[in-house]
Amino acid sequence: MAIDKETVKYVAHLARIELQPDELEKLSGQLHDILGFIDKLSRLDTSRVNPSSHILPISNVLREDKPRDSLSPDKALENAPVKKGNFFSVPKILE
């Protein structure tokens, strides 16, 4: 899979990462190499292997519907960069 600069730009935008032109250059190359490396896996014959969606052979981990203590609003908001009253405050979102 070829990774061109446009793809890197697009992925960077989706992740809200701002890249400088030289970073774009560098990352395009690196991502290309990484994906090429991973691509080796596709040489394996997996036709007899069931698809897996989890690395651990466990399933159905559930918990009972029992309330437990939550954080206090003070604690929850302790590290918020900006807060107002008991709310987290963020730059205005236009609906």
Binding site: R63, P67, R68, S70, L71, P73, G85
Partner: peptide
């Protein structure tokens, strides 16, 4: 396990 309770004050039924 945060309780669902609509009357609560903001950010009082939250956890990590």
């Amino acid at each position: 396990g945060c309780a669902i309770d609509f009357g609560r004050e903001p950010n009082s039924s939250v956890c990590p």
